[in-house]
Design a binder for these strands. Sequence first.
DNA 1: TGACAATACATAGGATTCCTATATAAATAC
DNA 2: GTATTTATATAGGAATCCTATGTATTGTCA
Lengths: 218, 218
Amino acid sequence: MSNEPDATPSLVDRIGDGLSRVATAMRTEAWTAADAIGLNPTQLQILTFLVARGRSGMRVKQIAAYLGVSQPTTTDSVNALLRKGLVEKQADPSDARALSVAATPAGLAAVRQAGQLASATEDAIVSLSKLEQQDLLVHLVKIIRNLQTTGAIPEQRMCVNCRYFRPNVHDDPQAPHHCAFVDAAFGPAQLRIDCGEYDGAEPETQQAAWRVFNRGSP
Amino acid sequence: MSNEPDATPSLVDRIGDGLSRVATAMRTEAWTAADAIGLNPTQLQILTFLVARGRSGMRVKQIAAYLGVSQPTTTDSVNALLRKGLVEKQADPSDARALSVAATPAGLAAVRQAGQLASATEDAIVSLSKLEQQDLLVHLVKIIRNLQTTGAIPEQRMCVNCRYFRPNVHDDPQAPHHCAFVDAAFGPAQLRIDCGEYDGAEPETQQAAWRVFNRGSP
DNA sequence: TGACAATACATAGGATTCCTATATAAATAC
DNA sequence: GTATTTATATAGGAATCCTATGTATTGTCA
């Protein structure tokens, strides 16, 4: 980001600023939501992440990569959740070094409770039209895909990375894509960022699908 | 955000997730960029904020509101920057209780240096087409405006809040708006998030301008 | 097979953020 | 002229978050 005073920042810089502003609001909100259930933002984020993954459990390193923090920091927060009985550690049968962290029923309940709380960010997104929301989602998917390609974030459980994703195979502009897992057509507004049924495709398959997906919106 | 496992999250929830993912990447990036010049993300954010405001200086409370943290936390970080010689405190002539924090030349240099560093987020935004970037900026402006209306964030120095903003007064779809400060037409791609020449309009004026602005993109 | 490197996690130690509560000083209200 | 509000600083403490290192397990390769 260029920071020359008295100069007009580039479009890209201004988008970055805008994302920062929204991120600030989300962080403030995360503090209050987490505080309401006796947690802090990092702990709530971990718990939400684990709940979304179900009872299969995740490794400490995967959680660290998702959060974008170091492994010891993750251990700290996981232990804090452990003391509160919201997650549990299990030995990984396939690797005696590793362990599997999963949310307990109490953890699921806590996340649901936090989700009930009013969210200013959610309200702000709702203020956009349905079409604007759809466009915004697609733009975010593209940005996230790029962040993933450059290694800034780990591989995401998104449709566009998934082996069940068939982009632009239908004529219906409302639902041009197809999910081979549920065998149904769907459109841009249904794109997933973090899907439970996700199964990562090979890099070449991902790239091919990505090209076809992008062709739809030049 | 609803977190029912095995249920498809709403479009709004998925957009929230997407924003979170991008925010995570930006936070990670902020750590490395700030670390390269011997700061931490909060300190760099404060410094960038002060540099954008020029040498006029900002009060501690304003900085705290911008960051979304408490005032003592801001005092901590400002003092850290002070020790490093990157900011300076000056007495406010109009109010002996208050003080004015401004970036020093060394602070400006540090921000410029951090700005030179490669940014994965910037690259990811660049991967969007010009039109997509423009749409994204407009969507972010709308979200930020809404966050401001609900009090989640303080008033932003955006065009849409500014007394010099004249929305949708020209026929040119590329440049329908007008800035009375520089007396020039401009378009959605030139909208500012944080303008140096900003001067806040009265709430009623803002609302009226906002209605006219929104009429352009229903 | 056996030494060596890599991996997964825990621990140690320390700096810093970030909070609430409170103190100080100045401005404002009545 | 006293009381309240406002701007900032300070005190104290919890928790994040880092790097460096330790321990146990797995993988590699001669």
